[in-house]
Design a protein around this nucleic acid. Structure first.
Lengths: 118, 118
DNA sequence: TTAATATATCCGTGTAGGCGAATGTATTAT
DNA sequence: ATAATACATTCGCCTACACGGATATATTAA
């Protein structure tokens, strides 16, 4: 059953979005790349939990990461397919329904850590 | 962690879409309501499997059903929220990536069962 | 070297949900 | 009543993956 194209497995993508923590991460990354410590700070979750979800998102090709010294920066993968664009619109629309998503963004902005590893 | 609004649990919705069989069902329903026997026919899956997935979609409020004699007709739930509309656009976009989805629609059209319970 | 920091991975445990055969329940036809 | 049809639900089995504590790895600083 082939559902993969250009490194994008539709079923896996939807599965990735079916977890609140991953949804929060993706939503935060819409504002630009972030390092793991930023995410841990805003999400207020154990480091292993955040790291596990990031690994999941990496495997699903929804995010990419780059390493700079001690920090790993994560960013949204470029949305090339029409499908990927629609997925991003879904995440945006989720903000209307899940107040926490907007709260996260505000929490990031007011976070003193947001420039700790700039 | 509140993620529910107007009977729509975002996480559950994405989880519902993360299964190929359910994606196929939703895509078929985009063409209008269908009875279970139509779906079994096109999907070529055991009755219990199809029925279980339909139950899942019902619980997620993605579909509704009506009963007419011996037949149960399923239809897409009306997309009231912006989020729901975007979800439908995602399913549509999935057709570009999963050839089976278009094949299903054709298979339905040429199916002799497609008017067995009209 | 040694220590500290940032991140990834491993571990044991628990739950959600996949499968198809079998069974239960309406409904309609004879 | 009996049989056939359309569907839902139950069952036992199995895999994916959620969790957070513990540990491993890489980098940089002292």
């Amino acid at each position: 059953m082939k559902t993969k194209t250009q490194n994008l497995d539709i079923e896996k993508v939807f599965r990735a979005l079916s977890d609140l923590t991953r949804l929060r991460i993706l939503n935060l990354l819409r504002g630009g790349e972030l390092c793991v410590c930023d995410l841990i700070d805003v999400l207020d979750l154990p480091q292993s939990t955040v790291s596990r979800h990031l690994a999941y998102l990496r495997k699903t090709n929804l995010v990419t990461s780059r390493k700079e010294g001690l920090w790993h920066y994560y960013q949204l993968a470029p949305a090339e397919l029409k499908f990927s664009k629609k997925i991003m619109e879904c995440i945006e629309a989720s903000c209307d329904v899940i107040p926490l998503l907007d709260k996260d963004v505000q929490s990031l902005q007011s976070s003193s850590c947001s420039d700790c590893c700039g």
